[in-house]
Write a protein that binds this DNA or RNA. Sequence first.
DNA 1: GAACTATACGGAGGCTCCCTCCGTTTAGCA
DNA 2: TGCTAAACGGAGGGAGCCTCCGTATAGTTC
Lengths: 198, 198
Amino acid sequence: MGPAGVTTGSARPLRADAARNREKLLAAARDMFDEAGTDVSLEEVARRAGVGVGTLYRNFPTRIELIEQVYRHNVDELCASGDRLRAALPPSEALEAWLLEFVAYAASKRGLAGALRSALGDGASTVFADVHEKLQTSGSALLGAAQAEGTVRTDVETMDVLRAVSGVCVAAGDSKDPAASRLPLRLVLDGLRYQPAP
Amino acid sequence: MGPAGVTTGSARPLRADAARNREKLLAAARDMFDEAGTDVSLEEVARRAGVGVGTLYRNFPTRIELIEQVYRHNVDELCASGDRLRAALPPSEALEAWLLEFVAYAASKRGLAGALRSALGDGASTVFADVHEKLQTSGSALLGAAQAEGTVRTDVETMDVLRAVSGVCVAAGDSKDPAASRLPLRLVLDGLRYQPAP
DNA sequence: GAACTATACGGAGGCTCCCTCCGTTTAGCA
DNA sequence: TGCTAAACGGAGGGAGCCTCCGTATAGTTC
């Protein structure tokens, strides 16, 4: 599941240049959504990606489709990063590093998920189910390893942790300052290390 | 507070033609918002009102201002209708007739209030406070009269009734069919007539 | 490595919408 | 009846949406 050979469903794989452009579009869109919300001009998105509008519309026929793909893309990147961290760091450090990245994801998620929900209505439920499942899988791998190693308490489950972390973000409000959630987040992370008496 | 001499704040009253056009714009906007949401083209609103766009923008410099005024206008009309009903019908019938009109208001309110809240943020709170107070006043006059007459139970307050009625609407969902809420609404209205043992 | 074709590119163009500006019209007054 | 402040309205410039189609190129075949 590297950045190459992106396939949407099971159709014929994209041509190399097409895959590259698609990636550039998603990156540009993600940046702009973060900065200015999901109402930005699609022509501007194409311009920033260094691509014609035609290419944008070929890949993402509607604005909401672009939003959905950016959302899924963010999640995929977050999960891929989880795998990388798991391979590179000791379990409890990998978990902590991943949760820090999860914070950034949670911040951007708000706008995207809101737009999706209001535009797609109940049709958005499969998107959210997919995302939930992916996070569950990646999170469990990290949490499980740390728990097996004995450096993280065993009485919590993946979704408890993710909820706690995203709760911190919500509580930190819309403040764009990442420092605002630094300390509360620290508390949650340290809480994971605490071993309750049996 | 008739339809003439509309004043926004305490400025000089509008010229007759201006007041007429303002009214036409509000009516057109209300219809279109009901039909197609608050994202409709403002040029189309002006067209339907039989007025130039310039006139629209002079009266409502921003879309959100138009939405807010339509919202307030709906409420004002509902309250005015309450006065009329109270003068024309026996108290309990007036109350019931008014609550039926309240249903229509509650349906349209959803879209408008949502747009206001998301666009104005906390700035919208005075709008909602004003509206709340007006409904409280009109509702109390009708309910109080019916209670004084003895045809409606005395252990409920205005906001209880309004909440119950709008609850019915919400529960009826987005179904545009007014029949969907007819029976549940009937239950609430009949419930008002029931006299609990003391 | 040359030729071929399915695939993809990109931006011009037609449309709608936004909002402003200003010459024209008219309500209200004396 | 005339005067003037107030209001009208729509042309026009700018921007965004989306489509269409002539051009370019990746990948394949010989």
